[in-house]
Each structure stands twice: as C-alpha cells, then as structure tokens.
Write a protein that binds this DNA or RNA. Structure first.
Lengths: 194, 194
DNA sequence: TTTTGTTGATTGACGAGTCAATAAACTTCG
DNA sequence: CGAAGTTTATTGACTCGTCAATCAACAAAA
C-alpha cells in the first residue's frame, strides 16, 4: 500500500533507529537488519533509501549534530551578555540529552569514523568550527586578541570533560562539567584583565 | 617443531599485531585471521593462546597503557621540582609516540570498549587514577587543597587536547598541546597564589 | 504505464571458534 | 639408558552463523 512521499519519513525513521542501535551496542557492530527492524521496515528498503550502511551512519551523525546545533542556538537565544553566550554554549554542550546512551554512543563512534570516513571527518570539522566560532563570539568582547587561544583551550576542555563524564560509571552529571569549564573560563578572564 | 616456551613470544606478537591492525583499520573491524597472519601464525593458534578476540583487544589495551606508563615514569625520573613533575606528565602524554596511527586507533577504540567491556572499563579507570595521582603529586606542593580540582581539569584537558590533535588533519603537533595545557596550568597557579 | 514503495528470497562472502591430528620436546620409571 | 606417557606447539579443515547488497516481483498511486 504505497502512500507517496514516504522517503523523508522512512529516512528519518532509519536515522533515528540507527542512533538508537548504536547507543544500544555502543559500537558500530550494528546490522542493517537491526536498524531496519527497529524502524519498522525490511532491510531491503533501508538499502533502497540509503545506498549503504555507511551512508546511514553519516546521516545519523549529521542528525546528532543538527540536534546539538539547535540546542546551542536555543541557549544562545536567551543570552544577552558575552559571558552568557559562553555560558550558553557550555550549558548546551553538557545538557542531559547529550549524556543519553544513544548520544554518547553516537559521539564516541563519530570520532572513530572521523579517522577514516571522509564524510565523518568533514562533519566533525564543521562541529569544531561552529563550536570555536560560538565561543569566540562571546570571548572576543571580553579578552580581545587572547580569545583565540582561550577558545581553543575551552573547546578541547569541553570534549575532554564530555568524554570523561560520558564514560563515567553511574549517572553523568553535566552540571559538574559546566562548573569545571567555568573555572577554566574565570581563570582565563582574570588572567586577561590583569 | 615445537620449541617450548613459545607462549610469551606468541602472545607478545599477537598483542603487537592487534595494535597494528587496529591502527590500520581505525576501528575494531579486525579479524582474528588478519591479526594472526600479521603475527606470523595460524588463526587457530591465536585462539589457542587468547581464548577470544575480546581478550586480545583487552591485552592490547593493557600493553598500550604499559607503554604510556613507562613513558610517564621515565619523564618523571628527571623531574626534581613539582612544576617539572606536572610538566613531565604533559610531555609524556603528548609525546610523538602517542600520535602514531596505532596509538590513536588504540585509544579511540579503548574508549569505545570501555562503554561495554568490563575489562576495558577497569583498565580505563586505572589510567585515569594514575594520571590524576601523578598530577596531584606535582600540584599539591604548589596549591595544596586546590590541587584536586586542578588535577581533574587538567586530566580532562589532556584527554580533550589529545583527541583533537589525534583527529586533526595532517601531522599532529604534541608541543602545541603541551603549550595549551601549560597555559591552563599557569593560569590556575597564578589564581591560587592570589 | 510510468513512477514510487515494498519485500521475500537469494547470493556470495566472511568470520569466530572448535576439533582432531601431527609433531616435537620434556618426564618418568623400570 | 631408553621406552612409554605427558605436555606443549601447531595447523588444516570444518561448523555454524551472520551479513551487506542485489534482484525480481508485486502493489498502488499518478
């Protein structure tokens, strides 16, 4: 009973199912059959819409990035001062949603894929550029020329804190990560105004 | 022609081959046959010495950790002041060896495994504890009670900087990472003496 | 009837782990 | 010392399973 216009619906379902399955297993040992079953269709249909499993993975990562980007934009919308802008990025980066099993699995395997898959590497570069640029927008009014270095450090710190919190036993605490990043930030700001 | 006492030799060869293969592919899609071939033996023999592929992976990670630990100890041996102790940890963490393809692959997949494999999780906890303790030993004489927080922040920053440098296009530059971490450290020290 | 949606069946391949069998080195004990 | 037995090393062949991708065929909408 083919209703037309199924393509975007099917693709969205597959992307979501891919993320769930990666979160479930923790790695990329996920079969097209599993994904398709979870998305409520046959494996053949999955291959029909995405040419290959790899394309499913890349699309899944793109979706994760889109979600994260939306969260950042939402947080930035309520920020008025430069400090609040930086704080907004931190808040969004360590929001509870980012620590769900699916998100953690997606990010960790994102890094794995970025090693070898050009599409993944490109996406990761986009994420990094956007993060840096968002931080820079908040930092430049505060510390001018020194903003670049601080943005780089803060970016790395965000990734590192996320990694540690995500791999920690027990329920991860995003607020602790935000606090730790803020400490770095405050320190850098004081150093600059000296 | 079985010469006796082959076990340690074979195991070492398999561990090394496992690391090389993970570095080659970037992920854990490595077959026992590939590993065994590279180690110069039959797949059956690999299964004989390690009960399963998973045990090979865990042993490979243990080896990576051992190498890293030795590098840290070596660097610490030449340090006399507390500052030099911290600096030694940074230097060892960002040494060129850690940025070889095999090492990067090992670490990235280490994190993947730590999500679900208890053995890997335990190893990661050991690494984190040791890193923290090494940093603490250098930081406590400098800033006393505040050392804990700074050690945590510096640990996360090390992981984050490593991740970024390892995934960067082109040849990674450990010295840049050391410098970035030093900036954080100096900032924290100045803040503390205020 | 052309396009879009959908699937069952199939292909062709690969892979982890087992097992039986062979061979050499060590041990025991008469 | 030397034969019989034991342990260690080693592999080819095999089992049982899986999986990505293809294809032919069917159904319904335009």
């Amino acid at each position: 009973m083919p209703k037309l216009g199924m393509e975007p619906i099917r693709k969205a379902a597959l992307v979501k199912a891919t993320i769930v399955e990666i979160g479930r297993t923790g790695n990329l040992d996920v079969t097209v059959s599993q994904i398709a079953r979870r998305a409520g269709m046959s494996p053949a249909l999955a291959h029909h819409y995405f040419g290959s499993k790899e394309e499913m993975f890349v699309s899944a990562m793109r979706h994760i990035l889109t979600l994260y980007g939306a969260e950042v934009r939402g947080a930035l919308a309520t920020a008025t001062t430069p400090e609040q802008r930086v704080q907004a990025v931190l808040q969004a980066s360590f929001s509870p949603g980012n620590f769900r099993r699916e998100a953690v699995g997606a990010w960790l395997n994102f890094w794995i894929m970025a090693q070898t898959m050009p599409g993944a590497r490109r996406l990761l570069a986009i994420y990094q550029r956007r993060l840096r640029s968002n931080l820079l927008a908040g930092l430049r009014p505060l510390i001018g020329a020194r903003a670049g270095t601080v943005a780089d450090g803060l970016s790395a710190l965000i990734d590192g804190l996320y990694l540690r919190e995500a791999l920690k036993h027990g329920l991860p605490d995003g607020r602790a990560a935000v606090l730790m990043a803020r400490t770095y930030l405050d320190c850098a700001l004081k150093e600059a105004e000296r």
